[in-house]
């Protein structure tokens, strides 16, 4: 690994951790379905950056790019399905509040 790649590695890791924290905080604290999905998206962004960083550091850019492309396709489908479910819930509850999701308890 080149010296430059190594100096890059640590600050990137730091910011990836920051992104993870922001995403998890959003997911845990919010009461809104859409905002929960946005938190999830932030987590996926962090993972994408981690993968690309690893590819850069290990000089496996081609492999990692193909992985990231696949990852993006998966992400889109999951988010589309999730948005559909959130819309369905909105139709029943008339709002997007997760505190309404207490029908199922146990």
């Amino acid at each position: 690994m080149s010296a430059q790649a190594l100096t890059l590695f640590w600050p990137f890791c730091l910011f990836i951790v920051v992104l993870f924290v922001i995403g998890f905080y959003c997911l845990l604290v919010t009461f809104n379905l859409i905002r929960a999905l946005i938190g999830l998206e932030l987590l996926i962004k962090a993972v994408t950056l981690l993968l690309v960083l690893v590819g850069y550091v290990t000089a496996h850019e081609a492999l990692v790019q193909s992985l990231v492309i696949t990852l993006i396709v998966m992400e889109v489908v999951i988010i589309a399905v999730a948005a559909g479910i959130a819309l369905g819930l909105h139709r029943h509850n008339k709002n997007l509040d997760t505190r309404q999701l207490r029908n199922l308890k146990g």
Binding site: V52, G55, Y56, I72, A83
Partner: peptide, 24 residues
């Protein structure tokens, strides 16, 4: 970080398509 192809995907799909889904 030398991942131009994936970057294009990210730009068009994530900041484009997914934002559209969310805003809709």
């Amino acid at each position: 970080l030398h991942a131009p192809l994936a970057a294009v995907f990210e730009l068009s799909v994530c900041s484009g398509l997914i934002s559209v889904v969310f805003i809709a």
